[in-house]
Amino acid sequence: MKTGMPRTGVTGNILTSDTSGAAATESAPFGHALVRVAEADARVVGLTADLGKYTDIHVFAERFPERFFQMGMAEQSLIGAACGLARTGLIPFATTYCVFATRRAYDFIAIGAALGRANVKIIAGLPGLTTGYGGTHQGIEDLALMRSVPGLTVIDPCDATEVAQATAAIARHDGPVYMRLLRGIVPKVLDPATFSFEVGRARLLRDGADVAFVSTGIMTPRALDAARQLEAENVRAAVLHVGTLKPFDRDAVATLLARVPHVVTAENHVVTGGLASAVADMAVDERLDIRLARIGIPDCFCDSGSLPHLAERYGLTPRHLADAARNLLRT
């Protein structure tokens, strides 16, 4: 904080989640979902690299201590051991943070898990600006790295409902998966009675003919907020949630964009190599004549600070999404 700056907030505990505005929340949806999956399937095992409590897998470890392996502060060993466990027929869920999984163990994910087609589930916490701890802890480019690895499935869930459903779905899915994790007290936005996660499928959460939000991760609830703001101005906005970045649901996105060519992508990630890139690539391939605005983290490492402050500072709030839509429609 520069001298004379107004104090807008402070960096929270690393475990602090942003639940501001959430009507409902759930505690540790991943950990509890993993226990349910493991109760039904004895092949499921868990590992972490000294981040059990911080990735909610402590819930599993307490329920199944003999099926849980603490690997210590050693991410290469974490991913390598997970691959070895998978090769004996087990289904390992290995947790750490996005930054450590991708930056420290990239070769082990690429070769051990992806090239080796090991049935490993990498669960990575603190995606993007879900932590105020600055550049060392904010996983801002992990989706770009993971999307470029052949054969890897990449998932960025948007709320507690999807975290829980995706946990069960990826246990059933045969092959290596990288999933971003929302941990602790997690907002619950989607109704489990009507939403169903499926690997590789995008979901149209709201339809509208004027502008299309194509979003992933925690930006989807913000896109829904922005759509409600626009509704008051008689602008009808669609929201397509792309929970699986890879394989990318080209059909769902292309179908929507052919109908609604004004498009705002929204991701909790740098705007290069993630969702915006996937949409732009697809639009070029399909020769879709679209107008695209990209909401995401700019090409920079981010500051530390409170989560609302960071969302404002880097342009990730519902207001920024609505403004991007308004600008598209104006020009």
Binding site: G80, G84, L85, R87, T88, G89, L90
Partner: peptide, 10 residues
């Protein structure tokens, strides 16, 4: 060796 450890555990 990283994978060998996982195999031995499994």
């Amino acid at each position: 060796l990283t994978q060998a450890v996982g195999m031995a555990l499994g």
